[in-house]
Amino acid sequence: MADEMDPERRLKQQRDDLELLNQVMRHDIRNDLQLVGAYASLLEDHVDEDGEAYLEVIRESTESAVALTTTVRDLAEVMLREDAQQSGIALDRVLSQQVEEVRSAYAEAVFTVEGAFPEATVVADDMLGSVFRNLLRNAVQHNDKTPPKVDVSAAVDEEADVAEVRIADNGPGVPAEHRDEIFGKGEKGLDSPGAGIGLYLVRSLVETYGGDVWVQGNEPEGAVFAVRLPLAEG
């Protein structure tokens, strides 16, 4: 009988396998998807009216899959890192950057920033951008309105020593009975591919920072995803 692999060796092998999967996701699969998207764009002048509808489906599906590879990459990096050092991160800088990047990626959506983001320093690390990127994308991807509208605001509660970011949309909303489970690992509470893993990553990161994330109803329609993060000392 072969000797059983000791726990330390098994853990190392699992980490090596995850690192390999991460590399494949970051390079091979992502490059192939981007190639599909590029060739789809070249076909625009070579299809008839019926073909344009099919081509649009290809483009949208490719963009969604590319976004999913980014989320999987980020989740793998979270799982692979050891004793990540958290420090003070400028909330306004990270949040502004992600709003601009997602706005550029979804030209059909209307993004509104309510006031100026506070110049607050929160407890986080360089993965904080992934939190806001996933929530902003969700607000557009799972929206059934034309155009999708996303309102972003942030404020500081000095008494509680926290900063709170709110991302509101005009979509279908999230039923009260599903508002907690959509953050679960592998859940598809938003009824769309990739929603579960993205929100699972969001909660995993925010809880690592000592913060909290939740969803509530928006008025008159839609959902509001809120992220609360502790302020960094100093």
Score class of each variant (00 low, 15 high):
159 E>F: 09
87 S>I: 04
219 E>K: 13
39 Y>M: 11
52 E>Y: 00
232 A>V: 01
170 N>V: 05
144 D>V: 11
46 H>D: 05
192 S>G: 13
31 N>K: 01
159 E>L: 09
224 V>R: 11
54 Y>G: 05
217 G>C: 01
110 V>D: 14
138 N>Q: 07
169 D>M: 03
14 Q>E: 15
140 V>H: 04
167 I>C: 08
142 H>R: 12
159 E>I: 03
106 Y>E: 08
61 S>D: 11
11 L>D: 13
164 E>N: 07
228 R>H: 04
181 E>D: 09
17 D>Q: 10
153 S>G: 15
24 V>E: 09
71 T>W: 11
23 Q>Y: 03
198 G>K: 02
61 S>F: 02
19 E>G: 05
37 G>E: 03
149 K>P: 00
36 V>Y: 02
150 V>I: 15
191 D>A: 15
138 N>A: 10
148 P>H: 06
89 I>W: 07
98 Q>P: 00
117 F>I: 13
54 Y>I: 01
148 P>C: 08
77 E>Y: 08
212 D>K: 15
29 I>C: 04
133 R>T: 05
129 G>P: 00
231 L>D: 06
95 L>M: 08
22 N>G: 10
58 I>F: 11
174 V>K: 01
168 A>C: 09
94 V>L: 07
114 E>I: 10
186 G>I: 06
90 A>E: 15
220 P>A: 03
50 D>C: 01
36 V>G: 00
182 I>T: 03
164 E>C: 11
63 E>V: 05
50 D>S: 04
184 G>Y: 10
38 A>N: 02
34 Q>M: 13
227 V>D: 13
222 G>F: 06
93 R>K: 10
129 G>C: 03
227 V>M: 14
69 T>Q: 05
31 N>R: 05
157 D>S: 13
202 V>T: 15
108 E>V: 10
107 A>D: 14
223 A>P: 00
125 D>L: 09
164 E>H: 05
218 N>C: 09
132 F>K: 07
190 L>N: 05
160 A>C: 04
178 H>K: 13
154 A>W: 12
139 A>T: 08
213 V>L: 12
168 A>L: 13
71 T>Q: 12
105 A>Y: 05
91 L>P: 01
107 A>G: 06
168 A>M: 14
179 R>N: 06
186 G>S: 08
189 G>K: 02
